[in-house]
């Protein structure tokens, strides 16, 4: 049995007709049509499915879509402004922090949430902020560098 559920994703409301036991990542990918969010382990371990719920990172593979009603969801598609990449996206390309790319959307969402609440994080704080995201191409150092570069960039923009 399915029900009509309204999901607010990246500022747009999407009415979707879904079974209520479906997970958010599956609904985002298959019903809303936003496939940037990846499904890796489906077990709340790898972080490929990370999205922001009211600004906080959650594992969308293990979150019921129906429970996200009335909350604001941000996916990786919500980062760029039109054709203009978000500084995190630009920097992760520049530092070489993308190899196969499967972990990248989740990494970006965790990084975005971290910088939103802590615009000037230490290396240790960045590691903790990304500790729920696995990369199997061993790209952690370059991902860390991308977050550091973005923090520097955002701080110089806001103080100028």
């Amino acid at each position: 049995m399915s029900e009509l559920v309204n999901l607010e994703v990246n500022g747009t409301t999407y009415p979707v007709q879904i079974a209520l036991d479906r997970n958010l990542s599956g609904v985002l990918r298959d019903e809303v049509g936003l496939t940037g969010t990846k499904e890796g382990c489906d077990d709340c371990e790898c972080g490929a499915c990370m999205v922001l719920l009211d600004g906080q990172p959650i594992n969308s593979c293990s979150y019921l879509a129906a429970q996200a009603q009335g909350r604001s969801i941000t996916t990786v598609e919500g980062l760029a402004e039109g054709d203009e990449l978000h500084p995190l996206q630009r920097n992760i390309l520049a530092t070489g922090g993308v190899q196969c790319g499967f972990c990248t959307p989740g990494m970006l969402m965790s990084a975005q949430a971290l910088l939103d609440r802590n615009p000037d994080p230490t290396d240790e704080e960045i590691r903790i902020g990304l500790s729920g995201n696995l990369c199997r191409c061993t790209g952690y150092a370059r991902i860390l560098a991308a977050v550091q570069a973005t923090a520097v960039e955002l701080n110089s923009t806001s103080s100028s």
Binding site: L53, Q56, P57
Partner: peptide, 9 residues
């Protein structure tokens, strides 16, 4: 507990 995303919810 878990990771930041686990601890958030």
């Amino acid at each position: 507990v878990g990771s930041p995303s686990t601890r958030n919810v």
